[in-house]
């Protein structure tokens, strides 16, 4: 079982980062346990986490959603899933993970993070290293959906 005390800061961080940096309202849906590695989207980034817990966090966007978010983030329209849009997925992952770690540190739960890796393409996979359950939380925005996945070693 994943402790909600660890997961909730990642969800709060997701909403906070998107609102602050891209003026995007992200609404979380019902979390579920994911059984396979297939990414439910077109472009993803994954970041490794160490310290009080070992695991990883991934952010998976549909093309329509990330193009809209990147346009807001960078102040210019993006019509293609190009290098700049992919880079934005990495930086968003970095910021969300950082904000979540800051929230967890307030409760004495100290985590460190690596540098995000960006992957993409139809049918790409997300390889979490942790053997524990993989919690997926779908989010909706006015421009489409994205997913946050968190997995920790048990």
């Amino acid at each position: 079982m994943i402790d909600v005390k660890i997961i909730n800061p990642f969800l709060a961080a997701t909403m906070h980062v998107l609102k602050t940096m891209a003026q995007v309202d992200a609404r979380p849906g019902r979390p579920f346990l994911k059984k396979d590695d297939l990414a439910m989207g077109d472009v993803s980034a994954i970041i490794g986490i160490t310290g009080a817990a070992q695991g990883s966090m991934a952010l998976i966007f549909t093309e329509k959603c990330i193009k809209d978010i990147a346009s807001n983030l960078l102040g210019e329209p993006f019509t293609e899933l190009n290098h700049e849009v992919r880079d934005a997925v990495g930086e968003l992952t970095n910021m969300i993970c950082g904000d979540a770690r800051r929230r967890l540190a307030e409760d004495g739960f100290i985590l460190q993070a690596g540098i995000p890796t960006i992957v993409g393409g139809k049918g790409h996979t997300i390889m979490h290293v942790a053997n524990g359950p993989r919690l997926a939380v779908p989010f909706e925005t006015n421009a489409g959906s994205f997913m946050v996945e968190v997995a920790f070693q048990t």
Partner: peptide, 27 residues
Amino acid sequence: VTAEAQKENIVEAIKAKVSNYVVKPFS
């Protein structure tokens, strides 16, 4: 400009004479 906003990180940066820091995300 950093996502590393835990207390010990800030102390480390101040010791190294950082002028100021901005925590991501920021407006």
